[in-house]
Design a protein around this nucleic acid. Structure first.
Lengths: 245, 245
DNA sequence: CGGACGATTGAGTATACTCAAATGTTGTGG
DNA sequence: CCACAACATTTGAGTATACTCAATCGTCCG
């Protein structure tokens, strides 16, 4: 997940908390968006930071001929819009009906100068976002379709309810978003979902709802552990140590 | 270029300058490395920042089964090692005979608290690094082999001597590094080099030396402009406006 | 000169792609 | 509430791009 501040990730107070403390009226700047609506576009001046209040957003970039890459999904508690240049290099769009708190940059900067905690939190967050993007890039550059989808499902699951996640994950984004996030086509994503279903790794109660039946197997696939691919069905053992390793 | 501070990129004083000002004896901590030598490994504690003095370094990560992704190349003036977690998530290795200034983190942090300029420079740099990684990811996720290599050559050329670059670029890294940087195999990289040569886009005086004969054509390929692919040979016109657009 | 390594080239293949059609889902108006 | 339209997703068939495995070529050193 490139470019994401996760409210759960820090041992320090979360950026969201700090902001809501320092800007007691920040909810006055909350704006709602409908599905597909653009918050900022590529080339727009970077005037604000954004704190996700409700729903799901995505950060995207387009090539000139219309290909699209999704760089991140932002969930409630995440901050985005921290691009350093004068203009945004990514567009931020609402995936579904969602809401953002809009935080003017000058005010944030002033607070940063005054409050070392906010300062440190933002810096830590920015560098952590970089770390989070590493896995994403490794996946895109060096993994098969099934590894990418397994990684995606594992990551989403663990973000929704850390540290272990629920076994049923609601996917607010549509298949095209997943495809563009993973650097695949929508057809390949769909086929891989079907394949996972047939292998008993997941079930699909509804199209946008995934029940993860065998989280360990999925996690091993995601870790690019080639052995996992040769284990289609059994494997009842837990394997949490492997995650930490 | 993920994770890179480029000494040329900023309108502010470069991080390198600030560090050498604030740490007048930082050159006492300069360490030399031979080709392939590891500066820090994945999992090592994050005790220092690093400033490249001479030569070329790469940031890499391995999957469990040995696949490798190169995330960045660091040139003199670049800073690396700014990972926020307690341990490094990437390994940093010397590509050739190279040297790093080793900057203890606690000292840097102290200076950051005291000196808002250093602080701002590092923050700007960290977020800029994020922006720089965007193109890399877009390439890896959504481009063909020839687009990736065209982008790589264009980027290297412009980094070596901004803003336009020399027409002859010395590649200190070997083909495997390029392949792992672009998410391709070494064979595909090699074939694409050959193809570019046959199309008259480049020439290869030596294996590690690329002469860029048609920078505009290469740049258009890199920009994922599909029209460029249907223009194999002629095209004498300049096209700098397209870069800015 | 020979060995080691890096790079290129060749042949065949697999994975994910494209184009196309069918199916499923959602939302809207009658 | 149902029917229909619009859209999202799945499935199918064929193909292209980049991969794998293998051999050759070139270059740098000892």
């Amino acid at each position: 997940m490139a470019y994401v501040f996760n409210a759960f990730a820090g041992d320090k107070p979360s950026v969201g908390e700090l902001l809501s403390t320092r800007f007691p009226h920040f909810d006055a700047a909350v704006v709602s968006f409908t599905a597909g609506q653009e918050v900022v576009g590529e080339g727009d001046p970077t005037e604000n930071f954004f704190l996700v209040i409700r729903g799901l957003f995505r950060a995207v970039k387009f090539t000139r001929d219309g290909r699209r890459q999704v760089f991140a999904f932002y969930m409630p508690g995440d901050i985005c819009g921290l691009e350093p240049e004068a203009t945004h290099k990514l567009s931020i769009e609402a995936v579904d009906r969602a809401a953002m708190a809009i935080l003017p940059r000058p005010a944030c900067r002033l607070q940063m100068d005054v409050d070392p905690r906010l300062n440190a939190a933002l810096f830590e967050g920015a560098t952590r976002a970089l770390t989070l993007s590493i896995d994403h890039m490794l996946m895109i550059g060096r993994s098969s379709a099934e590894e990418r989808l397994a990684w995606f499902l594992t990551m989403i699951r663990e973000r929704v309810a850390p540290p272990f996640g629920e076994n049923v994950v609601e996917l607010a984004m549509q298949r095209q978003d997943i495809a563009d996030y993973l650097g695949l086509t929508i057809e390949t994503v769909s086929r891989t979902f079907t394949q996972f279903k047939e292998r008993g790794l997941i079930s699909l109660p509804r199209k946008r709802s995934v029940e993860i039946l065998r989280p360990d197997a999925l996690r091993r696939l995601a870790a690019a552990d080639r052995d996992a691919q040769s284990i289609p069905y059994p494997e009842p053992a837990r394997d949490l140590a492997a995650v930490a390793a």
